[in-house]
Amino acid sequence: MHISFLDPFQARDSLVHRLDPRVKAVLTLLYVLAVSLTPQGAWAAFAAFLALVLTAAWAAKLGWSYSLRRSFIALPFMLAALAVPFVTPGPAIYEVPVLGWTVSEPGFVRFVTILLRAWLAVQAAILLTATTPFTDLLWSLRNLRIPQALVAMLGFMYRYLFVLADEALRMNRARAARSPRIVGAPRPPIGWQARVAGSMVGSLFLRALERSERVYAAMASRGYDGEVRALVRFQMLGLDWIVLLGVSLSLVAILTLTLVI
């Protein structure tokens, strides 16, 4: 499970941290798009993209390898592409001993490309969350015309994520405290354990439902009328425009060069 209770945001005093969150959000999306559009086997382009993301990590004072070290999250999904090297037609470059499966060259290239795209994209996303407080990110989403109601929901979810996850973990702990392992005694059957987990989920739901009622009451008592309202927070400065244009242009340049050559 993915509950890292530590907020992924890393406070630093850096150029990247000071950028308008909208600039960072848009650039991250453009980066992911550019990486996804890069043709198979365009190794130079991928190297350039990697350099870009490492530079950003360094400029954010996170250390150049920050995103690198955290980027293996997407790795388990690699399994989904594992067949590609074997089933893509083309000249064989390797034969698996015993099994006799052959890896084709285009298959290998495609496989590595998929992994590279995933790996680079996830690094950009990691940098975004590490340099942007989540509340600023939410604000920029609202500002980028994502429906207000949806963004407000994300805000509530973020706020109560920790509260409810804490409750869930406390329940897990309470259950563990009452689940002695007696050597030699049979363990309770899986079905039973799953039912216990299910009951925990049910009571967590009731607590959440009641909480949502109280939260609504707290909002209403401060004047909430169903409309979502928020303050304007950021102003695009000269620097923001420069970074936005500079980085987007380099993304386009890398792509164009790759395609022309």
Partner: peptide, 30 residues
């Protein structure tokens, strides 16, 4: 008017409920 707080809190509930697990076999859990 309850829409937004309720959907948000219940989304947090689903997220938290995903952390409630039960052991299936060595190392894996449901």
């Amino acid at each position: 008017e309850r829409q937004i707080p309720m959907m948000g809190v219940l989304a947090a509930f689903i997220f938290a409920a995903q952390a409630i697990n039960f052991p299936i076999a060595a190392g894996t859990s449901g």
